[in-house]
Design a binder for these strands. Structure first.
Length: 494
RNA sequence: GGCGCUAUCGUCUAGGGGUUAGGACGGAAGAUUCUCAAUCUUCAAACCCGGGUUCGAUUCCCGGUAGCGCUACCA
């Protein structure tokens, strides 16, 4: 018979959701998106987000990884309301649940050793049979099994899957999903050392924490019928499931290290702002209602989010679009917001700005931000604005300072600026244009050459705004050093 | 292999029995200019295949194919 309808119960209740990473690695983008969806869902309904650390695999879980995950969530701006709970500290709950299952005859002791199981699996594979546990110990007499267990023989506890029928559940994104019970294996609940495995601890915890909606990766779909059966055997209410499609690399295989940056922290280090990352991640598999823009701040994301609008197909992670969001956010942020982000970037890059004058910092940031693509630009391409030590871009030098005549003229121009009384934007432009006319050269040639001399880059804001930002003294001395700069560029190119 | 899920521009996706199949990123061209962005204007770009059902399928059904997931005393 087909068991279980989805609960979806307690419509009036505030949802309780959880993000339950396993600390066997850093917070990766897939986990981050799952966390984000949980967070958006909880906030949308004024519910509760619970953080739970699934560290039942003592071998592979480390405190360092837990820390990394917490840090990643904090950087992402995802705040949880309860927890973190650690499964390693809740073993009593799992033992009680296991005892209950044994009591109800929904579980049995299994004395098969690892070696035996492996042998049988290998043989099954050889013969082309499914490598399913065939229930050797399920046939054991109950009292006999108990006697052996009591006598000290090591035993795992297995769940007894119903012999017939099917198990289905209603998924908020996939709809009804059904599995034949004959496909399911009598999985292990308690290892022979008494520690719980994933299925038991997850279900016991989700029931205990009164989780109403389980939002997790689609890689868990196949696990779900086992868990549904567990809920039923435990007499617990079945939550609503929402499986979100996986994130893929450009080659359409599951995103992993070999695709490059996969840890959330790597994106912070690459100068991505958290809000841009959140916005991009939210759009990976979820679509706002029609007519909505894609640039969506947190409050709008929260307001518009819905499990129904989650796509069923896996999505390729598109770095280029992330970068577009990043540039877009940097451009729209007020300089005050950017300053603290940029200061963190400077600390990382060991760059100390030549001045701490706040007004100057803010106006310079405002000047630069329209063409920034990453926070890193403020310590990289824009370095010359904040520090006197910078490497010229050899391509830019090649393009605009190759002509020695131009370089000579810039030297002469430097002297004009040196002796000028008024160095305003208007006046510095007038001086340069008059100078160009006098020498019979195009102003553009001098402007472009100056830009490279002053910033080391071929790409920068309007030249006279640049001059204003870096000031008269630095403008003059950099123009004077144009030969040196050209030489340095040639050197670095070689 | 078995089971499950999925399939619209290069990518993220909207749509849905009759549409010029819409948007965003990216791409191309042009305008602008002091370089590069930005901005504005244009353009190119998609319904996996085969059968049904139907007056009509990209849409509904079935099959195939492909991709992904699961198939542990990992989570």
């Amino acid at each position: 018979m087909s068991s279980n309808l989805s609960s979806g119960s307690g419509a009036a209740e505030k949802p309780r959701v959880r993000f339950a990473p396993s600390p066997t690695g850093y917070l990766h983008v897939g986990g981050a998106r799952t966390a984000l969806f949980n967070w958006l869902f909880a906030r949308h309904f004024g519910g509760t987000l619970i953080l739970r650390i699934e560290d039942t695999d003592a071998e592979r879980s480390t405190a360092e990884m837990v820390d990394g995950i917490l840090q990643g969530l904090k950087w992402l701006g995802i705040r949880w309301d309860e927890g973190p709970y650690y499964q390693s500290q809740r073993t009593e709950l799992y033992r009680q649940s296991a005892a209950k299952l044994l009591e109800a005859d929904a579980a049995y002791y299994c004395f098969c050793t690892r070696e035996e199981l492996e042998q049988r699996r290998a043989k099954a594979a050889e013969e082309g049979r499914p490598p399913k546990y065939e229930g050797t110990c399920r046939k054991l007499d109950r009292s006999e099994a108990l006697r052996r267990k009591l006598s000290g023989q090591p035993a795992a506890l297995r769940f007894a899957i119903p012999e017939s029928g099917s198990t289905s559940f209603d998924d908020a994104v996939f709809g009804k999903v059904e599995f034949s019970n004959s496909e399911l294996e009598d999985f292990v609940l308690l290892r022979s050392d008494g520690t719980p495995t994933y299925h038991l601890s997850v279900v016991a915890d989700d029931a205990d924490l009164r989780i109403t909606h389980i939002v997790r990766g689609a890689d868990h779909i196949s696990n779900t019928p086992k868990q549904v059966l567990l809920y039923q055997a435990l007499g617990a209410a079945i939550p609503m499931f929402a499986h979100v499609p996986l994130i893929l690399g450009p080659d359409k295989t599951r995103l992993s290290k070999r695709h490059g940056a996969t840890s959330v922290m790597a994106y912070r280090d690459e100068g991505i702002v958290p809000e841009a990352f959140r916005n991009y991640l939210a759009l990976l598999g979820w679509t706002p209602p029609e007519g909505m823009p894609e640039m969506l701040g947190d409050s709008e994301l929260i307001r518009l989010f819905s499990l129904k609008a989650i796509s069923r197909a896996n999505a390729v992670f598109d770095r280029v679009k992330l970068d577009w969001f990043n540039a877009e956010y940097i451009r729209t942020y007020p300089a005050e917001t950017l300053l603290s982000l940029i200061e963190a970037e400077w600390r990382k890059a060991h760059l100390t700005p030549v001045s701490n004058d706040r007004q100057w910092l803010l106006s310079t940031i405002d000047l630069l931000k329209p063409r920034a693509r990453s926070l890193k630009d403020f310590s990289g391409a824009f370095r010359a604005f904040f520090n006197d030590e910078f490497e010229p871009d050899s391509q830019a030098v090649d393009k605009f300072l190759k002509d020695e005549n131009v370089r000579a003229l810039l030297l002469e121009l430097a002297r004009r600026y040196e002796t000028c009384a008024d160095f305003s934007e208007q006046e510095s432009e007038r001086i340069l244009r008059d100078f160009a006319a006098e020498k019979g050269v195009k102003a553009g040639a001098l402007i472009n050459g100056s830009r490279v001399a002053l910033t080391g880059q071929g790409v920068a804001p309007s030249l006279f705004a640049v001059m204003h930002a870096i000031g008269k003294n630095r403008t003059v001395s950099r123009l004077k050093r144009v030969e040196e700069l050209a030489l340095a560029a040639r050197g670095s190119k070689a």
